[in-house]
Structure formats: C-alpha cells, structure tokens
Design a protein around this nucleic acid. Sequence first.
DNA 1: CGGTAAGCGAGACGGTACGTCAGGTCTTGGG
DNA 2: CCCAAGACCTGACGTACCGTCTCGCTTACCG
Lengths: 210, 210, 210, 210
Amino acid sequence: MNTETQQSTETVPGAERSSGGPGRRRDEATRQKILQVAFDTLRTDGLRGFTIEGVALRSGAGKTTIYRWWPSKAALAVDAFLDRFPAEIQCRGTGSVIGDLREHMRALADNLAGDNGRVLGAILSGGRDDPETLQLYRERILMPWRERGRRLLQRGIEAGEIRADLAVDAALDALFMPLVVRLSIKVGKCDSEWVDSLCDTVVRGIRPGH
Amino acid sequence: MNTETQQSTETVPGAERSSGGPGRRRDEATRQKILQVAFDTLRTDGLRGFTIEGVALRSGAGKTTIYRWWPSKAALAVDAFLDRFPAEIQCRGTGSVIGDLREHMRALADNLAGDNGRVLGAILSGGRDDPETLQLYRERILMPWRERGRRLLQRGIEAGEIRADLAVDAALDALFMPLVVRLSIKVGKCDSEWVDSLCDTVVRGIRPGH
Amino acid sequence: MNTETQQSTETVPGAERSSGGPGRRRDEATRQKILQVAFDTLRTDGLRGFTIEGVALRSGAGKTTIYRWWPSKAALAVDAFLDRFPAEIQCRGTGSVIGDLREHMRALADNLAGDNGRVLGAILSGGRDDPETLQLYRERILMPWRERGRRLLQRGIEAGEIRADLAVDAALDALFMPLVVRLSIKVGKCDSEWVDSLCDTVVRGIRPGH
Amino acid sequence: MNTETQQSTETVPGAERSSGGPGRRRDEATRQKILQVAFDTLRTDGLRGFTIEGVALRSGAGKTTIYRWWPSKAALAVDAFLDRFPAEIQCRGTGSVIGDLREHMRALADNLAGDNGRVLGAILSGGRDDPETLQLYRERILMPWRERGRRLLQRGIEAGEIRADLAVDAALDALFMPLVVRLSIKVGKCDSEWVDSLCDTVVRGIRPGH
DNA sequence: CGGTAAGCGAGACGGTACGTCAGGTCTTGGG
DNA sequence: CCCAAGACCTGACGTACCGTCTCGCTTACCG
C-alpha cells in the first residue's frame, strides 16, 4: 500500500471512523487482508470470479465485516484498485509541455500494463450498472487523470505551445478515452509505442502539416 | 428487424440452421419475440435487470429455447442490439472527406442517442468478462465503425485532404473511443455539438495552427 | 421375448392396432428395441435413470413413437418387465398342495432373483403415484400370483390339507406381500431358504404345534 | 411434534447442531414450518406433488435452507412423517402375548389409517431409489415396528404361548409386510377387521388345527 | 476497574438467478 | 399412417451469491 500518496482518507469508503468513542477499534490488518484478497481475485479471476463471499472466505473475514465497510462489491473493487494504484502518477519533466503530456500518458500506460490494468479493466465494465460505483470510478480514477492532463494543457496554452482556442475537454477525451477502452475492451495493446502514436496524432492533427 | 442491412446471417449466433434436414423448423416468431424482449429489457432496466429468466418469462419462451440458440446472456444482448441497429450508418455526403467523417460520427452519435445507446452502453461493459462476447462486440459492432472511418481517412489521404504520414489506427482510436466511453461510463453527453468539437480537435490537432 | 406365454396381446398397451386400415404398419422391430432398452435401463440404472428421453436416445426411436404407444413411462416399464417375465410360473408338481405352494413361491423368488427382480423392484415403488400404473401392476403382475396361490389354497382346502375356515386373502397376503416388500425395500434377501422359512411359518402358524 | 417420544434427536437429519459454537442458531420455527408444510403436501398431493421448490414456497423458507438440513427430498419426507408419528405405538395390554401382538398391529393400522398412512405410502415407494433414504426408512420406521414385534414374540416363546422353534424373522415378515404393501400399493384396506384376520391366520397357520 | 459499545468470525436465513434435465406436445420430411 | 429428428413450453432440479440477521467472543474507552 502506498501510504504517502493516500490523501483524504476520511471520506474514503473502507477507512472511516478510525477513532473516537467507545468500542473496539477497526482492525487494520483485516482491512489490508480484505483489500489484498480482493485485488488478487480481480487480477486472477476477473470480475466474474469476484464475489464478496469468495473474498470473505479467502481473507478469513466475515461477510458482515466487509459489508460494514464497503457498501457494494464494486466499491470494494475500486478501493482494492486504488489501494495499489498511486494517486499521483510520477513522471520526470521534459523541457516542453507536450513532452510532459506524452510522459504522463506513458507513465499511465506503464502503470496499467500489468496487474493494475487487469484489475481496472475488470472494474471498468462490471461496475457500470451501479451508478454509485460509476461515480466512484469517475471521481477517484478518471478525474485525477484528466485534471493532471488539463493542467498540462492549460500550462501549454499559456506557454504558447498549444493553440489558445483548443476545446480542452475534447482534447482530453481524445487522449485518455482510447486508453480506457483498450483496457476494458481489450482491443489492442497499451504499450508505449501506441501511446506515442496516439499522442503524436492528437498533437499534430490529421490534416496536412503547417 | 432490418432485413436489408443484415448480411451473412448464416454465421450469426441465434440465426443458424434455418432449413434442411428432418425435424421441426426453428420458430422465427419466437426468435423475434426473444430479441424484442431482450432489447426492451436492456433499454428499460439496463444490464442489471437483464436476466435470461426474465426474458424467457416476458417473451413466453422457455429458458431452454434461449440457451439453445445463445450461449450466454451477453451473446443475446449483442444480438438484440444488432437486430435493431443498422449495419451501415447512412449519411449524406458533403463535398470534403473531412466533412464526410464528421457526418459519419454525427450519424453514429445520433443513432446511439436514444434506446440504442442505452442498450449498447449496457452491453459494452457487461460482456467484458465473456471473451467470446467481447469478440462478438469487437467484430460486429466496433470494427464496422472503424472500417468505415478507415476508408474515409484513406480516401482523404489520396485526395490530399489528410496528411500522408498519419497513423491511421491511432486516429481512429482518437475519434471513436471517446464515443464508446461516453456511452458506457456515462461521462458527459454524446450530442452533435460534442461530436463536432471532438472531430475538430482531432482534425486540427492541439498545436497552434499552420 | 417369450412369445408363447404372451396372452391377450390385443388389450396390452404398446401392442394394439397392429393391422387393418390404411397407412404404414407398426414397426415391430422398433417396439422390440424400445422394450429391450427400457428393460436394460431399468436393470442397470434403476428407476432413477429410467427416462423416456434416455430410452428414445438409446433405442434410436423418436420420443413421439414411444408416447404413441405407451401412455406413461410407468406403463412402458411394466410392459418391459412383462415382456421378459413368464405369465405363468412353471414349477414341477409335488405330491401335496402345500408342497406345490412352496414350489410356486420358490419359483417366483427364483425368477425374481436376478434382473427381473431388480426391474420389478424399480417399478414397484416408482409407479406408485400413477394410479393407472398401479392398476396395471396389480392386475397384470400381482393378481396372477395371487390367483395361482388362491387356486392352490382352495385345492388344499378341498383335499383337507388346509383348514376349511382359512381366511384365504389374509393367507395370500402373508405369503406374497413379504416377497413384494423385500424386492422393493431391499430389506433382506429373497433366496429359497428365506422362502421356505416363510412358507413354513405361515403353514404351521406361530402357536405351539400339535 | 411429539416431543416426549422423540428420542436421540441429535443424530436425526434436520435436527443436528442445535447449539454451541459461534454463528446464528438454527431457527426452530422454520424447521417446524418446513416439516409441517412437507407433511401437508405429502398428505394432499402425494409424492407426485411433493417438490422442494413447493415446500420452500409454501413454508416461506428458502430452498437453500431446506437443502442445508435435508440431503434429499426423500429425507425430508421421512422426517416430516416421523415428526408426526409416535416413535412408540401405545396400546393397552391384554392378558396374553398374542393378544398384545394383535393390539400392537391394530394400533399400528389405526395410526396409519388417516393422513399418516397416506404420507407413509407416499414415502415408501418414492424413496426407493435413494439408498440413503431407504436406509432411513428401514432404520427409523420399519425396524422399530419389528423390534417391538420381536420382543413380543420372544416373550411369547418364554411364556410358552408361542412355539419355541419359530423362525422369528419370517413371522415378522408375515405380520408386518402385508401392512406395508397395503399402504403403498393400495391393494385393499387396512382396517382392524383385516388386521385381525391377518393376525389370526399367522397365529394359527393354514393347516387344519391341532 | 467494571460497564458498555463497538468490531469481529461464523453461519443461518429468505431470496434471485443460474444452467441443466426431463416431461409431454408439436411440426417437419420421408417412407 | 408410421417413423426419426428435433424445436418448443413447462416445471423442478441443485448450486452460487446476495445482503441481512443473530450469535458468542474480543477489544478498548470512559465513567
């Protein structure tokens, strides 16, 4: 678990009520075990084999305990993912904004190349019907990516590296959505070659140059 | 059912073995009823409320009959969608290739604005765990969109409207994937305004012009 | 099949309408195959594994054909049994009526020792809920046994070997019912030793003798 | 439920694990309701209409709950019967052992005259294919009858009322099996007249008296 | 330092849907 | 009119998880 990047723990499901008042404290080891098992199950069996019952069994926890802290299995899945996914993608700065943008997307794709990608893919689709989980997904996974991208684009506009009349949201869509789809629909790979190609295309557009 | 646009019906699940040999023929009315009910259920209740049991009940068919023709509920969902979705999106030609591209995407978005979009969204994610259905989805829904787009882009390159060194696949990703995500994750609308904005962005790129 | 002992074939289910009128004649080979397979299935798998579906499959007949000639699977079972069970148990005469009685029961038990017993046991219980089959069973299997026994007893009474005030039906119950139960409930064996013991007991009674 | 006559409840299916250890206790009311409904269904509709599904529906219990406690529907049927059937048939003593024997059988027939008989008849045959249930049936229903009878016979032998060289098992067969058959095959009634007649026959034998 | 208020595991409970099996009916084409 | 093949609706099967609900036990604070 990446403790240093876990911010605003209080409002996160599965981590509330950690002190104050009488009664036994929440067992942190149990929480960890549950998240661990949840993540592994998602990785190994996909969302199909991901059941509260199974997580409870394999983690040695009671179902009650899981339901006490996570409102739905989708919430648990999102949490299990985020617990192992850095809130802030770290990447080295290049000289230019557009270079930084490419680095950001590369780092993202890198990070999602292995287990994380499998797990996120599982979540992406499965939780779709649960509006609450969709909300969680948008807010806690997708938005941070876009916000980081948005900041970069704005910085680029200010620096004159990006045209001022850009429809920022559309650009973010063009950049990040393909990543999301490739993960969930498994159409093609998400390697850095592809990421570069995508970035380049969006940066230059499809019209004949200059 | 749109008979004229339904090509190569023989290899499509749920439509095989329609003649020859002894034994009772497949009941076309039943097939239609099942697809109809499946579509309506997906539209109304989403994938959450979409159960074989329910479709059987509401269509008056036996569960066995459904399982005889569709291997999984995801396969049924894909079929129900395609039965009501035109295989070829029709749109008027404009003078330019880029105009045609925009028209194509507008028509697509239009077609998915109502029930079709709801249903497709439901399918998109739910079928993810069933590799077979994913395959179906890619081949029978996504690919036709991309192919149409690919042909347009290539025509544009030949006509000099589009730069010759374009990474076509990346461009297709940037154009169509956002549409898919907006449908499935319900992040933002898919109206023609947004489509125009997206097209424009991909066409011009994000760098300062010429 | 024991053709010579099969009497009154006309009223037997599965053997009617064998001539006259237009149309194709009934296929005797098919009838034989069905009965054969039915018998074997009962013998091998018991009533549990005895299904019209299975018989149709293994005999190569269509389900329709079976239903055309037998109203229920119990009827088929009874028929399959009777087709291989001699209508008249043959046994050598002894000097005395009581000896003949013992011989009759021995022959019966003998005949039911192997496959026939297994099959009859299967029928006995399974058909119980179908009143029609129960009727069949009583009329075509049980009654002949009792009638033969009744004739013997009556002969014994006339000959003075059996007391005149005997409640014949009760005696028949005491003699034959244990056989039926042992077959169906599988409580104990039905070997000739046991048969002798039973006969002897019923003959002599339980009170101290002479 | 006849609490006072229910002995050794611990080893009886559907009544185990009623205390100790963590976890929610078994709901006795539910158990009662299930047995009640099962009994009523058997009485009303026979074994034909006796389905786990139906019992679950009418009792308000989940199918899982039934399957948790009873391995098969036959086991449930046996239990439903025994729950309402006195483990020890009570009957007044007469002066003689043979009189007591007749009383015992009368009481038995009496007890089985109404609903109990219908239910037992239903069980008798239906459970035949399930060896486990057959076992249950033999051990928990048939054996107690025979044991009681056996004790009576032995007492009779000691008292000189019954001949010393009697084959006790054969005598028990002759006495009780007809009862069982009459119940299951429905050949004739089980009234006290018939019971008397049967007893008398077995007691006196069929040979001319003394 | 003892009461009380949680947290925790185990596990029973009423449900819903699953995917399968067999029952009995029907509709083909061919003999 | 018979027969095979086989599609069809019905209904029950036994299983898997769901989310809820007791239980008895274990902490830990707070008066």
